[in-house]
Amino acid sequence: MTAGTSVDQEARPGKIEARPVRHPWRYVGVVIIALLVAMIISSLVTNERWDLPFALRVMNYKPIIQGLIQGTIIGTVGAMIIGIVGGILLAMMRLSENPVLRGVAFLYTWFFRAIPRLVLLAMLGTGVGYLYPKLDFGLPFSQQITSAFGMSNDLTFYQLDVNSISNGIIIGILGLGLSEAAYMAEIARAGIQSVDRGQSEAAQALGMSNGKAMRRVILPQAMRVIVPPTGNETIAMVKDTSLLSIVPVTAELWYQITVVGSRTLKIMPTYVAGFAWYLVVCTILMIGQYFLERRFGRGFGTTAPGRTRMLGLGSREGGA
């Protein structure tokens, strides 16, 4: 290695300037795809039955936007909050040492995964107000007890008129949320179980209670595994809000789209408008998921500067 005379210097290999491997079929593929895209665009523009300007007007029509916000967006957010919180609770119950909690969580998951959402929403929408027109909040069996002893019904703390809300979005959100919790429970369970046992032991050795170890140590690490499928579930939920019309909820995107479509008789352009809104909402959600994944990936090697930049937004230095 020390024989570096002037003669040897020329013989030593220098910088690599090799030709890359050629991929001719990729160019063929790109050309074919470009042709197909051009055909679709040309058809959208030239075939006036698509009527894109009309679709754009429908998108900005007030009842449509109201439906989008009240039914689709608020519905998704509400159902996912119930679903995520409920799912994590169910997963913790499922993994607890208490056999009663384990059993309840299992039955819940079994029950709600077996019911199609459309069926659940239809039953909740028509059934709740019909079967239980008044909901009492009081001691269990208070009505039976009071009538048996001939007392006036004063064991009820609060009475809810179910029919005043049964047509509302609240029933729909509840139905979607309860159903979602069953799926989220499985996702959260997988996440919690993915965390190394040594982590909970280290937390216990510090003197943390089980609950605190779960909140501070296990769940933050489980989130890394939970977030990607939860993003999936959220996007699926956006689309499942279109089922709300069966409750019925009228302030909802898909219902409004069908109403506008049948009124104007321009059905396809109206559907395109609805589809475009779903596309916009889901795109925004995917961007949100990217940032969430980055947040919960802290400390797992996903925080390297090269991979944390998107859309020109700088990364915040993870630190104290």
């Binding site: 040594g198 032991e201 280290a202 050795a205 690490q221 919960f296 400390g299 797992f300 993870g318 104290a320």
Partner: peptide, 15 residues
């Protein structure tokens, strides 16, 4: 009681 593990078991999501 402080405990030090063979495999460290530091919390990876914290500095």
């Amino acid at each position: 009681i402080g405990m030090v593990f063979q495999r460290f078991n530091l919390f990876p999501h914290m500095t």
